[in-house]
Nucleic acid binder design. Structure first.
Length: 288
DNA sequence: CTCCAGGGATCAG
DNA sequence: CTGATCCATGGA
């Protein structure tokens, strides 16, 4: 992997072809991005707005510098990790995973900011991706701070904690407004720690997150996988449940708990990567 | 009109 | 502990 800067853009060259901006962004991990052209996405994250595009080993990062690329985007897109090795392990003796990986080999597991990720996945419950994006956008535009480039920051826990539930409902969050408020209060007060949790054991971290109203196992696992590098967890939603039952469990109706346990046993330390390949595969192929 | 969405809280058994 | 029902909102 090599990269170089020229005129406010950074070009990234990879030989393994395990990074696709579209596959990564469209795989349902993050919600503040938009498609600018068939091959260009605008992402707002880490307090920055980035435009990126390209496929097949050559990715262009616009509106950034070499320093910013190395300090922020390399980490955010998890570009230092060897995904070829992960795919090799997952697809060894697994024809199902072979198909899922081949369908979108360019998916990366992002390293998002925990607070934004937490609120995003609280909003995600019983909701659809376009609506989740809209609510997140509303929160940012109403309560975030506008930066010089005109984009909005994600509002901090202290800002949201001081709001009334009705302020949040106006962002079209529906019944989740009280959950967002509870999350803001518990993070703001320090009752639930979401930063500097690297040393916390995954099970303990999950229990802590679930002290927030509106955070169950699935939301907690998404937050841990997409913002805390807990790659051994296997967030089990309806899509993952359906595809696991269909492809791995002979179509037998199986509880979420059992599916999660089965997957964590089968995929081990790479369960989170497997989950993301399977989710994207199931959703875009409309597998029932 | 009805049905449902990257679930979870609540309540019944 | 497991299963059913409800939840705001908007698009199909």
């Amino acid at each position: 992997m090599t990269y170089h800067e020229s005129r406010n853009t950074v070009e990234l060259h990879t030989s393994d072809m395990c990074f696709s901006p579209s596959e990564t962004l469209e795989s349902g991990q993050c919600f503040r991005f938009s498609k600018k052209s068939p091959d260009e996405y605008e992402v707002t994250a880490m307090g920055k707005t980035l435009t990126l595009g390209g496929e097949n080993g050559k990715i262009i990062f616009q509106n950034t510098t070499l320093e910013e690329f190395e300090n922020i985007w390399l980490n955010y897109f998890d570009l230092k990790r060897d995904y070829k090795q992960i795919q090799d392990v997952l697809t060894a003796n697994d024809i199902i995973m072979r198909d899922a990986v081949d369908f979108a080999p360019g998916i990366r597991i992002l390293k998002q900011e925990p607070w934004e990720c937490l609120i995003s996945f609280i909003i995600s419950q019983n909701n659809r991706i376009p609506m989740i994006k809209q609510v997140v956008k509303n929160l940012c535009e109403r309560f975030g701070e506008m930066s010089t480039d005109g984009s909005f920051s994600f509002p901090s826990p202290s800002v949201l904690a001081r709001l009334h539930e009705s302020d949040i409902t106006e962002c079209k969050s529906g019944f989740r407004a009280k959950y967002i408020l509870d999350a803001a209060r518990k993070v703001e007060s320090g009752e639930v720690e979401i930063n500097g949790t690297e040393k916390t054991e995954t099970g303990t971290l999950r229990e802590n997150l679930m002290r927030i109203k509106g955070v169950g196992e699935k939301v907690a696992d998404c937050v841990m996988l997409f913002s805390m590098k807990r790659h051994e967890v296997f967030p089990t939603d309806v899509w993952v449940k359906r595809i696991m039952q269909k492809l791995y469990l002979n179509g037998k109706d199986t509880s979420l708990k059992e599916i999660r346990a089965y997957a964590e046993r089968r995929f081990g330390a790479y369960a989170g990567f497997a989950q993301q390949y399977l989710f994207h595969y199931a959703r875009l192929n409309k597998i029932v």
